[in-house]
């Protein structure tokens, strides 16, 4: 067992892990941050996306020991300080960008990383950026719409319903 220390959601976090323990498992099992989900075992689905030192990372592709000393942010820290939904989270609710909610934390973390680098993405850019995030409920329509809306773009004309 190895001792790891990192900063998670602005607070110091540490624990005993095996060498093979994934960051996703450390967050879920050791820190009880169960908002980070695990939907596959081949790094395809993106339900486990978190931010490590400001970059979107699939927490199932990284060992906990690799995050030694890192600054990790999870879905639990994405809302505003007063507990209200952030702009991206609010856009997901407003545009019905989630159904079962299982892929949602990863979607929000990926969307947040996208908008940091590309504040006004096109539809095509959003869709391609989400290639590493699988959603089985929404057909992506409302996720793409929500992310574009969160970037301040007018989505009212997108695909009449």
């Amino acid at each position: 067992m190895t001792q790891v220390k990192m900063t998670v959601n602005g607070k110091p976090a540490s624990g005993e892990v095996e060498g093979r323990t994934l960051l996703a498992s450390f967050l879920r099992e050791n820190l009880n941050l169960t908002g980070t989900h695990v939907g596959c075992d081949t790094s395809q689905c993106g339900a486990c996306v978190v931010h490590v030192d400001g970059e979107a990372v699939k927490a199932c592709t990284m060992l906990a020991v690799e995050a030694e000393g890192a600054d990790v942010k999870t879905i639990e820290a994405m809302a505003n300080a007063d507990g209200s939904l952030s702009v991206i989270q609010q856009a997901f609710q407003d545009h019905h960008g989630l159904q079962c909610g299982f892929c949602t934390p990863g979607m929000v973390m990926s969307a947040s990383a996208l908008l940091k680098d590309n504040p006004k993405p096109t539809e095509d850019e959003v869709r391609h950026y989400l290639d590493g995030n699988i959603c089985r409920c929404t057909g992506y329509h409302n996720i793409v719409k929500a992310i574009m809306a969160a970037s301040g773009q007018d989505v009212s004309a997108l695909a009449a319903e």
Partner: peptide
């Protein structure tokens, strides 16, 4: 708007795992 969204969007859902 869906009330269940708030817990799902903030990582506070309670799934079996």
């Amino acid at each position: 708007k869906r009330r269940e969204d708030v817990r799902f969007l903030t990582g506070e859902g309670n799934y079996t795992d």
